[in-house]
């Protein structure tokens, strides 16, 4: 761009009314031939960057790609050169054309505003991608690490014979408080080694660390409804495959003292407000329970909170917890 400064300074301005345009025209015509199409700004954008209300009569001639054939080449060259000058740093442009400083200043602000907008949009895009990555990947990593560790501690407590005692990681059902891990849920259909801790309560923080027990519902094995909730996606997704459970599938709730074997008999998809699914007799207000049931809830469809996927099971067997489950129970 120093070229413009030199020529502008050296050559006398032939037209007082349009000094900058004339000198640019001369320099461009001399240096680059009759029709240089610059690549810096698409033709359609020239009017955005270089149009000036005072040059209104010239702007339409270069308004679009089709205009190149019919327009006066001199006028087009002048516009091209002006656009190039507009891309230079403002200091240079101001030096070269003191008379048009105000016009270049306006161009500069428009251009820099677009640049700034671009930076903001790139930042917003990166933010959203990071959020999705955190939600769908990182929460699983963290939650799996935590739950695996808790399961290992609970199994170690059973092996050591301390499960359910005051000092153990494994809190006895009768002694549980909000957030305590008091049982392990095992579902052969979800995999031979599938095991997640069940914690008391269904608060957001609790559900980030495993499966949560609705505090208003019954305890494992009790007549009534033992109801639990778990994430379908994210945070280790303990109930990711809740829709794969079939009638007859076993769900094992292992407390410090007992294995409770439930068998799935039905599922339903309900609205989030349909709390009746976890009542002692599901769906029956003030019903008097006669059976020990299990209810699992998760969201439906995946990645949505529109509905709830609900599985109901029935207690079919109990075993004293001596560390080992009968092998036949774990068969799918």
């Amino acid at each position: 761009m120093a070229r413009y400064a030199l020529e502008d300074g050296a050559a006398p301005r032939p037209e007082a009314s349009r000094p900058a345009r004339r000198s640019l025209d001369d320099s461009t015509a001399g240096a680059a031939g009759p029709a240089p199409r610059h690549a810096a700004i698409p033709a359609g954008l020239e009017s955005i960057f270089v149009a000036d209300p005072s040059d209104g009569e010239d702007a339409p001639a270069v308004g679009g790609p089709a205009a190149g054939g019919s327009a006066d080449p001199d006028v087009e060259d002048a516009e091209s050169a002006a656009a190039q000058a507009g891309l230079s740093t403002p200091e240079t442009a101001a030096e070269a054309q003191p008379g048009s400083e105000e016009r270049k200043g306006a161009n500069w602000y428009v251009r820099e505003a677009f640049g700034l907008l671009g930076e903001l949009l790139v930042t917003a895009g990166a933010f959203l991608l990071l959020f999705v990555g955190w939600e769908l990947f990182w929460t699983d990593v963290v939650a799996d690490m935590e739950t695996d560790q808790v399961i290992a501690q609970m199994e170690a407590a059973v092996a050591a014979g301390t499960a359910g005692s005051d000092t153990s990681e494994w809190v006895a059902v009768k002694a549980k408080k909000l957030g305590d891990a008091f049982a392990i849920i095992r579902i052969p259909r979800f995999g031979k080694n599938y095991a997640k801790p069940i914690r008391e309560g269904t608060g957001r923080e609790i559900l980030r660390q495993g499966v949560g027990h609705y505090s208003s519902s019954q305890d494992p094995g009790e007549v009534g409804n033992f109801a639990v909730a778990g994430h379908r996606t994210t945070y280790g997704k303990p109930f990711n495959k809740i829709d794969k459970l079939q009638p007859g599938d076993k769900v094992i709730i292992e407390t410090a003292e007992t294995f409770f074997i439930y068998e799935i008999y039905d599922h339903e998809i309900v609205k989030p407000s349909q709390g009746e699914v976890i009542w002692p007799v599901p769906g029956v207000s003030d019903g008097v329970p006669t059976e020990a049931l299990l209810t699992m809830t998760s969201c439906n469809p995946e990645y949505s909170s529109r509905e709830r996927y609900v599985q109901h099971g029935k207690l079919v067997a109990t075993y004293t917890n001596e560390g080992e489950l009968p092998a036949e129970v774990l068969e799918v």
């Binding site: 933010f127 990071l130 959020f131 955190w134 939600e135 990182w138 269904t202 957001r204 559900l207 949560g212 609705y214 909730a229 778990g230 994430h231 379908r232 996606t233 994210t234 109930f239 309900v270 989030p272 407000s273 349909q274 709390g275 699914v277 976890i278 809830t297 998760s298 969201c299 990645y303 949505s304 909170s305 709830r308 609900v310």
Partner: peptide, 25 residues
């Protein structure tokens, strides 16, 4: 910046998003 987002911003933002509730009322 990523650490701050993962530790504080995203856990705060997530409950405001309508895709992760699993309980019935």
């Amino acid at each position: 910046v990523v650490y701050c987002l993962f530790t504080w911003v995203f856990p705060w933002l997530e409950p405001l998003m309508p895709f992760n509730d699993v309980t019935v009322e």
